[in-house]
Design a protein around this nucleic acid. Structure first.
Lengths: 147, 147
DNA sequence: GCTTACGATCTGCGCCCGTACACGATATGT
DNA sequence: ACATATCGTGTACGGGCGCAGATCGTAAGC
């Protein structure tokens, strides 16, 4: 067979190891940013999910973000108390709580996201343009939650 | 400024979110492979570290793999009992235990690694060659544990 | 109306992990 | 010699999480 050139790819670390380490580093870098906006990691995840689209049930939200349905209750309580989300009982089915961002919530999410993006930009700054876009393209493609 | 074209990059999910999801998926895919070889995740991580280079102290190993030094003791016990590693007291400093793979250990690690690589190949199979190599190149560069 | 199913919530169990501390053996500097 | 530091090991605490009920309100099918 036409094996690829024996470049540095042949003895790389495992994909899982590299990706897991990078994920850890990214999350670590994200933590102070979230703290600066007084938002927890789960809070930010919820805000992000609701920024994409409002949810009809909390169970759906939990599924969407890959969290236990009991996990997010406290998070939603806090977000609601801070008027970042609305949790209105559905008049058509009073079991479910319609979830959506408030204006404040949307604003805060945008601000946090901008800060996080800035941090990511610093990380990606040293990359060649083609490498950078290829990396992001592949990442989106391999991302299980991205489509 | 010459802003980049407003491609799909502008409204991507957060890097941390994508990378973390991908890491989770990769680890999930890895788990059955490890189970098939009767190796734990920590066990495989230790084998990988020692395959790269023998270690002079357990503390150094723990630091190298980003684990607590108390964490790895049980792992090392088991690996030693299965004759996959050697843990010999250093004659020059009898506090420390020289750590290295046995032949069996090196063999097992190579086998597991090959299986894991095969799984990764399946994941990367759909990528264009240039994207694939760019992705891996960037990954190695951003990997905090990769130099 | 009655049964069955579903959503939200609460509680408890068990697991994994990081951290901290204590201890004994040993090495090193003075 | 003695004080201090290091290494390996054991143990205990607490946090975060997934998972499995139990409860209550509600909806939908028969």
């Amino acid at each position: 067979m036409f094996s690829a050139v024996p470049g540095p790819e042949s003895d790389r670390p495992d994909l899982a190891a590299m990706v897991a380490r990078l994920a850890r580093a990214l999350v670590t870098a994200e933590r102070p940013v979230l703290a600066a906006h007084d938002v927890s990691m789960w809070g930010y995840i919820v805000l992000s999910a609701l920024a994409d689209e409002p949810m009809r049930t909390q169970a759906a939200l939990a599924r969407a973000i890959g969290a236990d349905k009991t996990r997010i209750i406290a998070t939603l309580d806090e977000l609601q108390e801070r008027a970042l989300i609305e949790r209105e009982p559905d008049p058509d089915d009073r079991r479910v709580r319609l979830l959506r961002l408030t204006g404040t919530g949307r604003h805060l999410h945008a601000a946090v996201r901008a800060d996080i993006r800035a941090g990511e930009e610093r990380l990606l700054a040293g990359l060649a343009g083609a490498d950078r876009s290829a990396f992001l393209r592949v990442l989106r493609r391999l991302d299980p939650g991205g489509g």
